[in-house]
Design a binder for these strands. Structure first.
Lengths: 97, 97
DNA sequence: CATACTATTAACATGAATGTTAATCATGTG
DNA sequence: CACATGATTAACATTCATGTTAATAGTATG
């Protein structure tokens, strides 16, 4: 997992909004499109960015594809960034960014 | 403070990079410009976005203006967003991320 | 297998963000 | 007060992100 990918994904307001919706329950592309007045193609591309960042997972169920928030990935990335911000002098051994 | 302002500020890679530098020590505009090969005007506008979001503070020292990371604001915003993501049921009191 | 429905991709247009150079403002120094 | 240095703003060009519609792919159902 890559903090930069995650933040690139979080960089977009619509995507953060999608995550907020998915925090409640898993939803399909068109569910999400309906929920904030945009079209499925727009949502679909946002979802692919979120997928690539590992922030959501997809599961096909018949015609629909249900997207689910990957909380651990998100919270872990936030925690990593937070600890990076907390690193004034201590440059001790650190694993990945 | 506004989580959206903060995330709008964090949306930019160069700005996150600035924050990483400022996590080490307070720096001036041209210090930062030198540190990642760009020009003072570019840095200056990024800093004004960060200022507006409350993520950094500015203190003039003679000709130079020293910028300082506001850790609390940043960490608080991350924690708020994290708890928003954790929000389906558990709305219990939580300390920092 | 034809049709309907959902999701994704393609192509395009538009608006926002970033960086650059030039100009202006602020501060310090001779 | 003239000049040098650092910071900011302005104006501009370029790139990137977003959304829209149209087309394509996958899945279910009659």
């Amino acid at each position: 997992m890559n903090v930069n990918h995650v933040f690139a994904a979080l960089a977009s307001h619509p995507r953060r909004q999608i995550l907020v919706f998915l925090a409640q329950t898993a939803l399909s592309t068109s569910d999400l499109a309906a929920r904030f007045g945009t079209t499925p193609p727009a949502v679909s591309r946002h979802l692919s960015v979120l997928l690539h960042a590992g922030l959501v997972s997809a599961e096909r169920q018949g015609q629909r594809v249900l997207y689910r928030l990957e909380r651990d990935v998100l919270l872990d990335a936030l925690a990593r960034f937070a600890s990076e911000m907390d690193a004034p002098l201590r440059r001790a051994p650190r694993e990945a960014l």
